[in-house]
């Protein structure tokens, strides 16, 4: 029933949310819808006309797009599992009350994700230069006989990007696992000790299943993050303002969108189409991950 009072309360409520809604509509919903409309447009710069599925056809014929897609999926397939496993291992280790200096280690592992992007990129560029500290150290330890061309070899450039984003985001994921671990009733592990459950089984049969929801959450987040990978490939493996080096070995979908929009002759429609490709990939992969993690 709508009395005068509830209507007034309703109006007040809408009035309070209105500024946020206007901003959301203007800067989120409108651009999203506009980009969907744009993805059906062809043409250069502001000169565009309706092209139907022309952009989608162009995708299938565009070797650079396919290359960027391959790179992005490679980063995803290799980096996300490594990072998730590493974050889990760190979290379990740091949750052990017998470990000394837990607080310091926890902070140290978490810090990279709040470090300034520019600072970290500059540091990585210098560390991984041909004569940088990383190569120097590896040479000194006789692990390698000549410097690794981190920036100039397509394979090593990918490795470098994977190292960089793993370094930056592992601690972020670890914090989720730590929070989840700290919510587990310690009696459960005491019960497991009395039950004679070996350490391996404690990890795989108790810890991992109990963290399943958090693992799913972080996997979906990391998948989305990696599909949108842009920062590192536009800074660390970039020179003279062009990212994705060498020879587009680290070109990602996001970087390609950026290039299409701001570096090449602007092709807004086609760039919008690629951004929708990312949206669809995110949707599909998240859906698949939710299905995989579903309780039987």
């Amino acid at each position: 029933m709508h009395t005068g009072l509830t209507r007034r309360e309703n109006l007040t409520g809408w009035a309070f949310t209105a500024p946020a809604l206007v901003l959301l509509g203007l800067f989120m919903i409108y651009p999203i819808l506009w980009s969907l409309y744009m993805s059906f447009m062809t043409g250069k710069g502001m000169n565009f006309k309706f092209g139907g599925f022309a952009n989608i056809y162009r995708l299938t014929q565009d070797p650079i797009f396919l290359h960027a897609l391959g790179n992005t999926l490679t980063f995803l397939a290799i980096q996300v599992p490594i990072m998730i496993i590493l974050a889990l291992v760190f979290a379990v280790a740091l949750n052990n009350p017998r470990l000394r200096g837990r607080a310091v280690l926890r902070t140290a592992i978490f810090l990279p994700c709040v470090t300034s992007l520019v600072v970290y990129s500059v540091l990585f560029k210098s560390m991984f230069a041909d004569d940088g500290v990383v190569n120097d150290a590896l040479l000194f330890l006789h692990i390698i006989s000549e410097p690794i061309p981190w920036m100039n070899d397509p394979f090593w450039a990918k490795v470098l990007i994977i190292l960089a984003i793993t370094w930056r985001w592992t601690g972020y994921n670890m914090v989720f696992y730590l929070a989840a671990l700290q919510n587990i009733d310690p009696s459960i592990y005491e019960q497991a000790r009395i039950d004679g459950v070996p350490a391996r089984a404690r990890f795989f049969k108790i810890t991992i299943p109990m963290l399943r929801h958090v693992i799913l959450f972080t996997t979906v987040l990391s998948t989305i993050g990696t599909l949108q990978l842009f920062d590192e490939v536009n800074t660390i493996t970039a020179s003279q303002g062009q990212g994705g080096r060498p020879a587009d070995a680290t070109l990602t979908l996001s970087l390609y969108i950026y290039n299409l929009t701001f570096r090449f002759m602007p092709s807004f429609g086609y760039a919008a189409t690629i951004s929708w490709v990312i949206v669809i990939l995110v949707g599909l992969l998240s859906w698949a991950q939710f299905r995989l993690a579903r309780e039987k």
Binding site: D185, I194, D195, P198, I206
Partner: peptide, 26 residues
């Protein structure tokens, strides 16, 4: 020995059957 905890300490992701049989596996 076997112990019963105040919080029961049941494995939340396992069924009653799995909870009861878990220790025997090892």
């Amino acid at each position: 020995i076997a112990m019963v905890f105040q919080s029961y300490a049941l494995y939340p992701h396992m069924t009653v059957r799995e909870n009861m049989g878990f220790a025997l596996k090892f």
